[in-house]
Amino acid sequence: MGPNGSGKSTLSYVLSGRAGYEVTQGSATLLGQDLLDMEPEERAALGLFLAFQYPVEIPGVGNMTFLRTAVNSQRKARGEDELSAGEFLKDIRAKAKSLKIDAEMLKRPVNVGFSGGEKKRNEILQMAMLEPKMCILDETDSGLDVDAMKLVAEGVNALRSEGRSFLVITHYQRLLDHIKPDVVHIMADGRIIKSGGPELAIEVENNGYADLLAEVA
């Protein structure tokens, strides 16, 4: 958590390898491998996933084609066999259904004309299909109605397991009623200024960031 403009999305972008950032200090590793040296697609194949705060619309590329290309590119990069069209279809249908994404939406171009909430659910569908090791969810809850938030939380909880981590960026304690965090970090001005348990999120919800910012000032 952290105030607007504190650097949460920036951190997610840097970790996932978006162009335009220069890392001047520190390191980032996943499963013992140096992330910062890799192309975005290599990071993805290693297991990093970012659910975008603002998912990108790609006219002309079908959602299904996109996901199948993504799944198979990652499998290929890891030296695994590609999924057959049948296997892929079965998998995606089941997962889309649990997120209440209808088949028609899968045929449409990636995120084009999707509502805000549909875009966010589509991000979670991608995560479910790609089964990453490290998932960063950048404000996936914003724009979701109450029921959709529950669906998304269920989607996340279903993936929670040993060997898989989540970094959930949110402004609202509400989401954390559904996704129980192990640790809450507060970011301000590009740094983690405080870490604690779930109670830290409740403190932010009640009092805002003023006190926390004053503590470190």
Partner: peptide, 25 residues
């Protein structure tokens, strides 16, 4: 479109393949 390229790459699609997808689109 750089944004679209990054989105595709962040899902594991190689740069060359991502570009081809966007060209065909």
């Amino acid at each position: 479109d750089d944004e679209a390229m990054f989105y595709l790459q962040s899902r594991g699609v190689s740069k060359a393949e991502a570009q081809d997808l966007l060209v065909l689109a």
